[in-house]
Design a protein around this nucleic acid. Structure first.
Lengths: 214, 214
DNA sequence: CTACATTTGCGAAAAATTGCGCAATCGAGG
DNA sequence: CCTCGATTGCGCAATTTTTCGCAAATGTAG
């Protein structure tokens, strides 16, 4: 019964959910794995296989009910509630994260922001007043914090991550260009645009030479 | 000879390069796959296998020369030159991208910024003046642009991506919450923090209930 | 010069992931 | 109520990716 669900599958579910939400806004009632796959650039078989880990949501000959499947995915992913997050590091990037309007509508609430710089502490950004990171533990008290967002310079990041873990955070969204070390009960996702660019250039490099001189 | 190198391998190389750069700054001369693996949380075997696609860079009994391997990786990934990028979409996010100091030092130059909003066009952000996206083609003339960064709202993104491809871009860093369609000669990497959060909550959800009430 | 502790590179095995094929089912249209 | 085209769920096969295991090589110490 408790069959192991591959991480790759979990990573794809939010993508499906996002596409379904778009279809719902367009007033679409049902969608086949074929259609959905074409939109997302994945094979229909993969979509069906992924979903089959969790149940039988489709109807033969018809496809999937958009609204129903979206609800199921939300439940599966735990998106049917709100998650409490804190941001550490309020520089250029941290500010952008704090001002980003895309988290709250999806149930991700930023409830506190911290920084080490005394000049930044006390500033108000998007209805939050920045608190000193040295007082993170005390400031948060016993509050449940689900997710920590790390937007500090690389040098401070591991230390901040340790502190977050100490505050009971069980997931970390890491924007710092390091490979974090965390206990096994803590999940980490890294976002580093430079790494993304650097892997694409591998392919660019190759066709740079073989391209016609125009 | 032209054996196919898996994408997953290419995606890991920049991570290795980043770690090696850190080691170099620390004055470290050699490193074993064991050490490097421990730092990055990957198995030594994986590092050795990945590198073996490209050559034999290590010495038995010693490990890898940090400087040498870093140079090799830079060459392999095409990081030994500068890449020309444009940003489309100068809202909150686009501004953050334009102001981010982490691209240029790695050889990624943003040479132009575009937006559709007449109120934004003409503004100066980080030494660039925003140009109208409707004039992208003309503005760029015949210049080579390697990478397009998309930071528009979802509704505009696909259209913008088509225009970028039309301008000869061969790689796209997409911040918009959509699954882009591009011709097969164009590479895409998506960055969507919401997707990252949504896949982590799957795991949080599970231990929320099983955790002790404290 | 020999013995020894290390560590690579790589073939082969194991594990994970993806894709195929098709019986079963569904709804529409006679 | 029967037929037909469409589409799922899923066992199984194919492919991809990771890990293992070890011979060969390297440097050190005696």
């Amino acid at each position: 019964m408790p069959i192991e669900i591959p991480d790759v599958v979990i990573d794809r579910l939010p993508v499906y959910a996002r596409a379904l939400a778009a279809l719902e806004r367009q007033g679409r009632d049902v969608v086949s794995s074929q259609d959905l796959g074409a939109q997302l650039g994945v094979t229909p078989a993969q979509i069906r296989k992924d979903l089959s880990y969790f149940g039988r949501f489709g109807k033969q000959g018809r496809g999937y009910n958009v609204k129903r499947l979206l609800e199921e995915l939300h439940q599966i992913l735990g998106l049917d509630r709100t998650w409490r997050m804190v941001v550490v590091g309020v520089g250029q990037l941290g500010r952008a994260v704090l001002s980003y309007g895309g988290f709250a509508p999806q149930g991700f609430d930023i409830i506190e922001a911290f920084d080490a710089d005394p000049n930044v502490v006390g500033q108000q950004i998007a209805d939050l007043v920045v608190k000193p990171v040295s007082q993170m533990r005390e400031t948060l008290g016993g509050q449940r914090i689900d997710i920590g967002i790390v937007a500090t310079p690389a040098a401070a990041a591991q230390q901040v991550i340790d502190a977050l873990v100490d505050c009971g955070v069980r997931a970390i969204l890491n924007y710092a260009p390091i490979a974090p070390h965390v206990p096994s009960h803590v999940r980490v996702k890294d976002i580093d645009p430079v790494l993304s660019l650097q892997s694409m250039t591998f392919y660019l490099k190759s066709d740079l030479m073989s391209s016609p001189p125009k």
